[in-house]
Design a binder for these strands. Sequence first.
RNA 1: GGCGUUAUAGCUCAGUUGGUUAGAGCGAACGACUCAUAAUCGUUAGGUCGGUGGUUCAAGUCCACCUAACGCCA
Length: 569
Amino acid sequence: MARILITSAIPYINGIKHLGNLVGSQLPADLYARYCRARGDEVMFICATDEHGTPAELAAKKAGKPVAEFCAEMHEVQAGIGARFGLSFDHFGRSSSPQNRELTQHFAGRLADEGLIDEVSEKQVYSHTDGRFLPDRYIEGTCPNCSYDKARGDQCENCTKQLDPTDLIEPRSAISGSTDLEVRDTKHLYLKQSQLKDRLSEWIDSKTDWPVLTTSIAKKWLHDGDGLQDRGITRDLDWGVPVKRGTEDWPGMEGKVFYVWFDAPIEYIAATHEWADKTGGDWESWWRTDKGADDVRYVQFMGKDNVPFHTLSFPATIMGSNEHWKLVDYIKSFNYLNYDGGQFSTSQGRGIFQDQALDILPADYWRWWLLSHAPENSDAEFTWEAFQTDANKDLADVLGNFVSRVTKFCRSKFSEAVPEGGTYGEAETKLIAELTTKIRAYETHMAEMEVRKSAAELRGIWVAGNEYLQAEAPWSTFKTDPEKAAMQIRLALNLIRVYAVLSAPFIPEASAKMLSGMNTLDTSWPDDVDAALKALPAGHAFTVPEVLFAKITDEQTAEWAERFAGTRD
RNA sequence: GGCGUUAUAGCUCAGUUGGUUAGAGCGAACGACUCAUAAUCGUUAGGUCGGUGGUUCAAGUCCACCUAACGCCA
């Protein structure tokens, strides 16, 4: 039994995420977690909300709430949506937790002790009206180059010229519009990533089994231009982890917090700590190689935009501490999912948001389509037409209908119990051999996190059942040899249970309905297919389940396409 | 402008270390069946692998250049 630590990139607290966010990390991570558990591994599946930073402050202000309250509410909203999608986190934490505060401060202290922190003095714009420093993008003004009047402090969107906030003519706060600004000196901490470049480079080079998407992004950041740059890890904000050197105050850093990118990945560890505090478990046995984590395999899931932080910044934090923290063993990264010819856009409200998706269809439809089209090798595209066709064909016609035809046939010709009699012939032997081959292939793809291939293989396993029925035609057999038909249907009924077990990582709700219909709690994995197809013995009572997957109609997709094309308020 | 990823049948995608007639699903046409959510099963027709030029006995699969899309950076 292996020990698998799985983390999904943590979604930002600000607002409800769209489906692109889901398929890029949480959903495939859940698929893998469920599969590992089904195979008997000990799994720790962690996710959280990323709560610190300016966008959260601004969103809270807009909502008219204190930021802590806003984050607490949004955390519950996101946790609720995750639960409805069937995301089986062992813990869904919060980066604003005391555990994360303590660990973040600890890491900063260790890095400082190792000489990897620089204190840098820089100039930054302060807004008297807002009572705060303004990050570059929260300053607007007239571009000195093209006179565009909405240039941002870092760049003019009109002429693309790079700017410093001090370049702007008539600068103003993007938050309040105030022009009562001044440039102040402020001191910040920098993580000297450049000093860890060789260690990081060597480490990345050793990961020959990682997806190209992951390593190519990492190598680009390592070697591009002047190479890996040092990064500021503090900000002049209120909302965040207060800067401390371990448990000690940090002279000159009063009133400052760590920058979100520094504390967010540490939340993976902290969330496990949160889990332990809640359950009495041992979080260090998952994260400290000197305290039992040396046999843990750590797998991270994320979208490609998060790769630099997970291949370089977070490992720099871990390595730099010179303590025995677990480094990631495998990074599975995903490209983007596009929506009908363009990008999903949170800011423009374009595409389908997670709560909306669940309002119109059960989670399994989304899980299946998104996973079977996961953007593994390139960006993928969501269209309503493809979604409707694929979901209807795969879920309703191939799997759902298989369950219907078998259970209803049995009920009408025999009873709502597994029929007795008959013995296997050549066709059954052949089917078992074929299923065995396909299931072993499915296991391989799942273990390798080849999401699309896994889905295709699973679908093939479903199809094999229909092929068998079609070829053996128990409805014909029944007229001349009822015992043989009984055997065929007994096998088919058992196949439903096997399908439920195999399909659970993809479509947990439907899987549960199938098991419930088959009136069994037996979720044992079909290591031995022959034996697995005898799990439900003759005489075992069952009930014909409701339609597993109702078909999506043309009217529905037409309506949805229109509803989600526009913007969300 | 730099870097990266991608470019394979109408659509969505597979194609291992270069090697016999380039694969799958969907869609299409035709056929079989009637237990089932007008579901299922089978057969067939469709690509010479973005373009050009190389390396090689042999390239979708390696190299160069070009084009296009997307992304990152500047």
